[in-house]
Amino acid sequence: MIQSIIFDMDGTLFQTDKILELALDDTFNYLRSLKKWDTITPIDQYRGIMGVPLPKVWEVLLPNHSQEEREQTDAYFLARLVENIKSGKGALYPHVEEVFRYLKANNCSIYIASNGLTEYLQAIVSYYNLDKWVTETFSIQQIQTLDKGDLVKSIIKKYDLKKAAVVGDRLSDINAAKANGLLAIGCNFDFAQENELAQADFVIDDLMELKPIIAKFEIAQGNTGS
């Protein structure tokens, strides 16, 4: 049976879309004020790469800027994101709490593995009191390789996980599951891409759909004597 589930955060548990454009607009307005940007905010470009670590985001969005400028931009963007979270402008996806209660009631441990930065993740966890369900939240900052597969591997090692699933909306989540021999469940939410989801074991349109998937997976394993 599934004993543990590792969730992605952005676009899976947290509706990042509600604060992303606000924070990105603020950030590029800041760059404009410094005479370091003179065109539209690249929100569509960001949506296309949503889910990759922020250092890689700024390499794509600011290809002609220095590393120091990218780091300054990153810090400003992070501050705006955190402020938006703390002011209640974000939201969890529907049924997050209900699904978490169901998982805990069925002795399934919950973890979060995200390409988001630690301060950002902690702001979400604190604002929505996710600690009462989530065993631990892991940031890509904890892994030198910036590889989500390695981040998931570290969770497996730390908690000696045996039968687990990864739930996320992007290819990095699916690949992280596959690389570690875990069940990959794709979320067809805001930032998801059809060609990426096609590589998951299951695809859901609502977190409530996790319940029957987990139940079916347990039955299938029972039939094989697992």
Rank of each mutant, 00 (worst) to 15 (best):
I40N: 05
V134L: 13
L31S: 12
I5W: 09
Y127V: 13
R70H: 06
D206F: 00
G222H: 15
Y102R: 05
D10N: 01
L20P: 02
Q141P: 03
Q141H: 05
D8T: 07
Y76V: 01
L207H: 01
N64H: 07
E97I: 15
I185Q: 06
I110W: 09
S226K: 14
Y76M: 04
K86E: 14
V203P: 05
N106M: 10
Y30C: 09
I185F: 03
K36H: 02
Q72V: 12
V99I: 13
R47H: 14
V99Y: 07
L13C: 05
Q3D: 10
E119P: 00
E194A: 15
S66M: 09
Q72P: 01
E209K: 13
I185W: 04
Q221L: 08
E194R: 07
G168C: 11
I85T: 10
Y102S: 05
G90M: 01
A198C: 05
Q193N: 11
G186W: 01
W58F: 15
G168E: 07
K104W: 02
V152L: 11
T137P: 12
S114N: 06
N188Y: 12
A123P: 03
H95W: 05
Q144E: 15
A165D: 13
I204V: 07
S114T: 15
V57L: 07
Q142G: 06
D206N: 12
Y76G: 04
F14Y: 13
Q45Y: 13
L183Y: 12
R47Y: 14
D150Y: 11
S33Y: 04
Q142N: 04
N188P: 03
K211Y: 00
Q67I: 14
E218N: 13
N188K: 10
P94F: 01
E196A: 10
T16R: 00
R47W: 12
E98Y: 09
L207T: 05
L146K: 05
G181L: 08
E97V: 15
W37I: 08
Y46V: 13
I43N: 03
V52T: 04
Y127P: 00
A164W: 14
G181V: 11
L117S: 06
N84M: 08
T12H: 04
N195E: 12
A192D: 12
P53T: 08
S114M: 04
I40T: 08
R32L: 02
N29Y: 08
D173R: 11
R32I: 03
E21W: 02
I143Y: 07
T16I: 01
A113W: 00
D160F: 00
A192N: 05
K56P: 00
F7N: 06
Q67S: 12
N107P: 02
D17N: 07
F77R: 00
E119Y: 00
F217R: 11
N223G: 13
Q45F: 15
K211M: 15
W58S: 02
M1E: 06
L61W: 02
Y111A: 02
S33D: 14
E68Q: 11
E68D: 08
P94H: 04
T73H: 04
D38M: 00
K89F: 07
P212M: 10
L161V: 14
Q45G: 06
